[in-house]
Design a protein around this nucleic acid. Structure first.
Length: 425
RNA sequence: GGAGAGAUGGCAGAGCGGUUGAAUGCACUAGUCUUGAAAACUAGCAUGGGUUAACGCCCAUCCAGGGUUCGAAUCCCUGUCUCUCCGCCA
């Protein structure tokens, strides 16, 4: 959520920022709501104040044993008027809130303008895509040959966009998860965190998936529904909802491995082949809760922490700065890591690292107490995948494939593979 | 699933329907004392919002949402969560 003060003080400018981030702001509507809000709030509070002083004087008169009937008569119609004013104020504030909740974050000044991923900016590349002197296969072919990936079984058990893994490839996914968690906890200073995979509405409102992106989520139940988490970002970031964090505990750095569930509505034709885009996938997520001035540095560091995993696995990748049109709703700035996939002859997203500024914190009421002022201040939130495990599995398979269809294992994974050095049929 | 108890400020914990945003203790901040620290003493110390050039004034908030009342932390209803006991269970 944007700072309401900013919205009031400089609505024209906010409108431009919204346009840049692919949203619109109806200034006429906003202005009329704002001016009504102002009038009615003042009116309501005046009536409340009036009621309070009168009620107080009734109490005092009663204590002295005076006749309070005339006083009671004099407030009789105040109540109705107040009730009406309060109801009207409630409605307007709900309307204003509804608008505010659908406005995206203001983009960082260094985010390039652009429509879609075509306009994302290359920051740097790492590693060289390997040259193969044989015909490369994608992970679907490799996985089926090795009898470790079964899309038909996934489709039978659940439906399209589900998969089953088995044998050494299933273990490889677990090994990758373990390796990522160990690296982030032991070397990068994150605290391992286990969280619910079902969350309530409030949590999704806090991180910004709701109210706007409900169709991307799996929902369970009607009256007080649960939602399957689309990313660990949701439960982990909500750890600090309604909290005031003491300065000594800042920054908070969490790492969490969870399955993620996305309905992928609106992605009908995209990535139908293979494990790239599934309804259910594993991800190791990094989340940092930091002081306002420190989120840019934290964003850089968190991205580097994710890059470390790719480097340790010796997977070629590139770092992209997302353009305005491709940057997510809650983000001020997003850096994507794209891994090289020989089977697709392309770089594909494997991590998305975002700085949210105070946008999520305002929705979450997540604050820290600044010892200099003694006052609570909104935190900044930063997160990113470190990494998407399913896509990392694909990347390892495709990059480490051998001519005979076997897959060599990266050195760092060997301790997790129980003596296995290569996966073959 | 059944029975009961509870939810109050950073924490602990009071609070006959009436001048209670809320006693007290702890923690925290500042001061006095001390060579310094501790102790003791003194003072300060919730959050969000409205309005104002500012000092300030005002409003809301005692789990959440409704209700009763001139007036609700206090009474009533609904929900959520926590605890205890019984049943079931990985």
């Amino acid at each position: 959520m944007l700072d309401p003060q900013l919205l009031r003080a400089n609505p024209e400018n906010v409108k431009l920022e919204m346009n840049r981030h692919g949203a619109d702001l109806d200034l006429a509507l906003l202005n009329s709501l704002e001016s009504r809000r102002k009038d009615i709030q003042v009116k309501t509070q005046t009536l409340q104040s009036e009621r309070n002083t009168r009620s107080k004087s009734i109490g005092m008169a009663k204590a002295k044993g005076e006749d309070i009937q005339p006083l009671l008569d004099s407030v009789s119609q105040l109540g109705d008027e107040l009730k009406a004013a309060e109801a009207e104020l409630n409605d307007i504030q709900a309307e204003l809130l509804a608008i505010q909740l659908t406005l995206p974050n203001i983009l960082s000044a260094d985010v390039p303008d652009g429509k879609d991923e075509e306009q994302n900016q290359l920051v740097r590349t790492w590693g060289e895509p390997k040259k193969y002197d044989f015909e490369v296969h994608d992970h679907v072919e490799l996985g089926e040959q090795l009898q470790g990936i079964d899309f038909e079984a996934g489709a039978k058990i659940a439906g399209s966009r589900f998969v089953t893994l088995s044998g050494p490839l299933a273990r490889l996914q677990r090994a990758l998860t373990q390796f990522m968690l160990d690296t982030h906890t032991d070397s990068h200073g994150y605290r391992e965190t286990y969280v619910p995979y079902l969350v309530n509405k409030e949590s999704l409102l806090g991180t910004g998936q709701l109210p706007k992106f409900e169709e991307d989520l799996f929902k369970i139940g009607d009256e007080s529904p649960y939602y399957l988490i689309p990313t660990a970002e949701v439960p982990v970031t909500n750890l600090v909802r309604d909290e005031i964090i003491s300065a000594d505990d800042m920054p908070l750095k969490f790492v969490s491995h969870t399955p993620c569930f996305r309905s992928e509505a609106g992605a009908y034709g995209r990535d139908v082949r293979g494990m790239i885009r599934q309804h259910q996938f594993e991800k190791v997520e990094l989340v940092q809760i930091v002081k306002a001035g420190e989120s840019d540095a934290a964003h850089q560091q968190l991205t580097a922490d994710a890059e470390n995993i790719l480097q340790a696995l010796n997977l070629p990748y590139r770092l992209m700065l997302l353009c305005s049109g491709d940057t997510g709703f809650s983000s001020t700035k997003t850096l994507d890591l794209e891994v090289w996939l020989p089977g697709q002859d392309a770089y594909r997203e494997i991590s998305s690292c975002s700085n949210f500024g105070d946008f999520q914190a305002r929705r979450l009421k997540a604050r820290w107490r600044n010892p200099d002022t003694g006052k609570p201040e909104l935190v900044h939130t930063v997160n990113g995948s470190g990494l998407a495990v399913g896509r990392t599995l694909i990347a390892v398979m495709e990059n480490y494939q051998q001519e005979d269809g076997s897959i060599n294992l990266p050195d760092v994974l060997l301790p997790y593979m129980g003596g296995l050095k290569s996966i073959k049929l």
